[in-house]
């Protein structure tokens, strides 16, 4: 099918003569999304492979290295809470057992799908703006049919969130000073709370917890949980962006403290 016979120029439709008549800055949201996602991807990739400055003050573990299960984690005693069994290799991140799943969780997330379909694939870049592709099969074929694994990576993301929570809690205990509270603790805590908000507001979580039921009245507890998750779910996109920011901020804080650029301010202990 040629360009002239498809889309808004298909026979029978009004011959307007312009592919879109939108006069607002419709290109701005997809452009901003592209920039935002690229910044995160570049930062996260560099940090995941840096294998340095991931553990600070003998208690702060950055989420990009959690759980730290590489033999390389031995360079920072106390950073590995779940054993060290992955080989220490420059191309293998220290948290290689969690990062691919967290990446998959975000890649298959219903919000991020909208974001990158619009900004990277331009299908469509904005509403009522024609997409550039000659054909379109949506999520009916490989590889996009794999988006259906979202619920499985959600289950794994819950486990990783539990591990991040454990990291944030054990960070209150310094190996020699005992119970301490520093700015880093608050940073880790805020990050993990927002990670839970993002994880639990997931559409698959909403479905699994109660959305799949036909009779809410027969399952009052699941209905109540579904109601809570539905309220969170309305802000899923917001949490998706906030957590990209808090992940970078948390990692950057640990990086700066671990590298000696700044000193962690202790509030207690």
């Amino acid at each position: 099918m040629t360009a002239a016979t498809r889309g808004v120029e298909a026979p029978g439709r009004a011959e307007v003569g312009a592919r879109t008549l939108r006069t607002d800055r419709w290109w701005l949201p997809p452009a901003a999304t592209t920039v935002g996602l690229l910044i995160f991807v570049v930062y996260a990739t560099v940090r995941a492979f840096q294998q340095q400055y991931f553990f600070a003050d003998e208690r702060y573990l950055t989420p990009f290295y959690s759980p730290c299960v590489s033999l390389g984690c031995a360079s920072e005693p106390g950073s590995a809470h779940f054993g060290m069994f992955l080989p220490d290799h420059p191309l293998l991140p220290y948290a290689a057992i969690s990062l691919p799943f967290l990446l998959a969780f975000r890649l298959t997330c219903y919000y991020y799908r909208k974001a990158y379909y619009r900004s990277f694939w331009l299908a469509p870049a904005a509403c009522a703006v024609p997409e550039p592709h000659a054909t379109y099969t949506g999520e009916t074929r490989f590889p996009l049919i794999l988006q259906n694994v979202h619920r499985y990576v959600f289950y794994i993301a819950v486990i990783v969130s539990v591990i991040n929570t454990y990291d944030a809690i054990v960070a209150f205990r310094h190996p020699t000073d005992g119970f301490v509270v520093g700015i880093g603790n608050l940073v880790l805590l805020v990050n993990v709370v927002l990670l839970w908000c993002y994880t639990l507001s997931c559409h698959s979580c909403r479905h699994v917890m109660g959305g799949r039921l036909a009779h809410f009245s027969k399952h009052p507890v699941r209905y109540r949980i579904w109601t809570w998750i539905s309220a969170l779910n309305t802000r899923h996109a917001t949490f998706a962006w906030i957590t990209l920011g808090t992940l970078v901020a948390t990692d950057l804080y640990v990086l700066l403290v671990a590298s000696g650029t700044i000193t962690d301010l202790r509030l207690v202990g």
């Binding site: 219903y110 509403c127 999520e139 009916t140 049919i145």
Partner: peptide, 26 residues
């Protein structure tokens, strides 16, 4: 399966129905 949940339907709905989040994704 053709729907790629880009939410334009929700954006233009004059009744404010959350078509994508409450119907298509479920």
């Amino acid at each position: 399966g053709l729907c790629n949940i880009t939410k334009c339907c929700t954006d233009v709905c004059p009744e404010g129905i959350k078509i994508t989040d409450n119907a298509l994704i479920p």
